[in-house]
């Protein structure tokens, strides 16, 4: 043990030096990472794509265990559940009649008004393979990558409603920014009166409604759906219900349950943005610039100069 004893002070010294070095490196990285450089994004994608298959394997037993627990739960309440479903079915049948009638009516109106119907949206289904990791980010990985057609910005939904949108993709996996994340902003409308707002995550379970007009009469229980503004996310996807906190501000309880995400769909929506530029019809164009300058005379020299500049 003689050599070890002489090596000990040196070891401790090198340990300390390396600790200081790593501290500096980590602090530098924290500052540099803010620049969002290409290198970090690339490294992130590589690591994510490498880890995704491992995580997928690891998440299988988790999903299986959950299913067993749910199954057991269901067995315990099978009679009650059956009874409830029967009642619900009866209620829904009445609604179905109503919906069919309305559908026919809407189709007739649309035909009358020559409405452009939204094109049907393709989707790729996948599984959520990872959890967010860490208390400050609300993102999950899904096993749908750009090989399956996923692109940054696409909306992700599950059976309940909007889950979030894709923020980065690799060949095999994509990262989904959930509605509750600090960086999430989704344009929404609040339904019966069609008030527009932005759904902003703030790291709590209930995202806020921002940019809501001051005089809008939104109350708890109103449905929130996507507005389609910005062209990233199709309009009309269910998001959640408005709730009022004890502090009095309006927040949204999302339909999708963040704790139970499993199978999701990535919507490959393309905004019909390729519209030809159209010049305004001649009747709408103002009088020629020269005549305007003549009419206003000397008093409006800047206007005249501007018109000349435009010419």
């Amino acid at each position: 043990m003689e050599p070890n004893r002489t090596a000990l002070p040196f070891r401790e010294f090198s340990h300390r030096i390396s600790l200081i070095f790593m501290l500096t490196l980590a602090a530098a990285l924290l500052l540099l990472g803010r620049a969002e450089t290409y290198v970090f994004d690339r490294a992130r994608q590589v690591v994510t794509d490498m880890a995704a298959p491992l995580l997928e394997i690891a998440s299988r037993p988790v999903a299986a265990t959950r299913r067993v627990i749910e199954r057991t739960d269901e067995y315990a309440y099978v009679f009650d559940e059956n009874e409830r479903l029967r009642a619900e079915n009866a209620r829904l049948l009445a609604w179905k009649e109503e919906a069919l009638k309305l559908q026919a009516k809407v189709a007739r109106y649309e035909a009358l008004l020559n409405v452009q119907v939204d094109p049907s949206i393709n989707y790729a289904s996948g599984r959520v393979v990872s959890d967010s990791g860490g208390p400050f980010v609300d993102t999950v990985l899904v096993n749908v990558g750009n090989e399956q057609g996923a692109k940054s910005g696409q909306a992700v939904i599950d059976t309940d409603g909007l889950v979030g949108r894709i923020v980065s993709t690799g060949p095999q996996a994509s990262r989904v920014l959930l509605l509750t994340d600090l960086n999430s902003r989704i344009p929404v409308v609040i339904e019966p009166a069609h008030y527009k707002a932005v759904l902003a995550g703030d790291n709590t379970d209930w995202p806020k409604l921002e940019y809501l007009a001051a005089q809008s009469a939104v109350s708890a229980g109103d449905r929130v759906v996507t507005s389609g503004d910005g062209g990233l996310i199709p309009a009309g996807l269910p998001v959640g219900l408005v709730i009022q906190t004890s502090a009095g501000d309006l927040r949204v309880q999302t339909f999708s349950d963040r704790g139970r995400l499993d199978f999701v769909r990535v919507l490959q929506y393309e905004f019909p943005s390729k519209v030809k530029r159209q010049d305004p019809p001649e009747v709408l164009e103002g009088p020629p610039a020269g005549s305007e300058a003549e009419e206003t005379g000397d008093a409006a020299v800047p206007g005249g100069a501007q018109a000349a500049a435009v010419e």
Binding site: L23, A26, L29, T48, G134, T139
Partner: peptide, 21 residues
């Protein structure tokens, strides 16, 4: 810490820094 940061999609270097400190 860095691997955690790369996988989590949060700030790069956050947990590397926190864990080293």
């Amino acid at each position: 810490g860095l691997l955690f940061d790369l996988l989590s999609g949060g700030e790069i270097g956050l947990w590397a820094f926190v864990y080293v400190v």
